[in-house]
Write a protein that binds this DNA or RNA. Sequence first.
DNA 1: GACATTGCTTGACTCGCTCAACCATTGGCC
DNA 2: GGCCAATGGTTGAGCGAGTCAAGCAATGTC
Lengths: 158, 158
Amino acid sequence: MATSPERFAQARRLSRGIIQTAERVKADFGEIVSALDIPPPLGRAVLELDEPAPMRDLAERLGCDRSYVTNLADGLEERGLIERVPGVDRRVKLLRLTPSGRDVRDRITERIAERSMVLDRLTDEQCAALGPLLDVLLAGDSPAVPTAPCFDEPGPPE
Amino acid sequence: MATSPERFAQARRLSRGIIQTAERVKADFGEIVSALDIPPPLGRAVLELDEPAPMRDLAERLGCDRSYVTNLADGLEERGLIERVPGVDRRVKLLRLTPSGRDVRDRITERIAERSMVLDRLTDEQCAALGPLLDVLLAGDSPAVPTAPCFDEPGPPE
DNA sequence: GACATTGCTTGACTCGCTCAACCATTGGCC
DNA sequence: GGCCAATGGTTGAGCGAGTCAAGCAATGTC
């Protein structure tokens, strides 16, 4: 209902704002890690490896395919940032940061803290306001669409 | 300064939230246009073509390379959604929605208005709160963000 | 009339990622 | 103990979304 032009315009404006902000955040991160000579996806991975984790876990955390984690791990290994250590279950390989990897991780977090766009621009109150809004937007991450009988849902059958 | 762990954790939390939200918004849009059998980039383009525009302009609005607009235009033309009409300056080609293109555009806007995640989940006050926050985050010059044209629409709504 | 400029196109390529097929190990079960 | 399905990781092919460099056509400028 209320398919009013204003309503649409507002949805569009906000959606754009969100997307553009995200793109800035990503670009920010990209700059930071690129300065360390690390492609962004590898940087993301490093931040997830505070402690050794099975590749499967990493895939889950990054929300990507396992085969891609193999890829990431190769890249990280080439750069000497991680090593694959066998788990108890010998199918499993744990990715563990090397000293150099920990160093990189620390540099990244340091620089984010220093020059993160979010921290730079938002006051504490604004941060406090933004958090809950995002929570609302992300709440119930199930792809089940609540009240939209319009068209076929992509609902991936589990 | 203030390189405290909490501060970093907060930056990370918010950044993630923003990125995830953006990804959901994108996915939302992707679903909507995919249901119309249109790849997302083409859908984006259609929404920019309320009135015929030179390809160059479109490139600017989409924040992408001109050669890519050629690509998009090809796709849109194949689907019969636009036609290239020569401009006064005969180097220029204007992209103009066909009737079928206008139809698609209307369907998209309609569905966004119906089931946009943003509108679905946020109350009016929350929308009102979110807007300014995004403005703050996006305010100022974008030093190194290539794909972020200005946030505001050049033309006010008609 | 020559020349730089502007607009679009083309083709090759990169990046981030998925998908399908595969091998190795493991655990359940008879 | 032996079979078999399930799980973890790897490989290779491929796709979507773009960029970049080079080129052609029309234009503006001197």
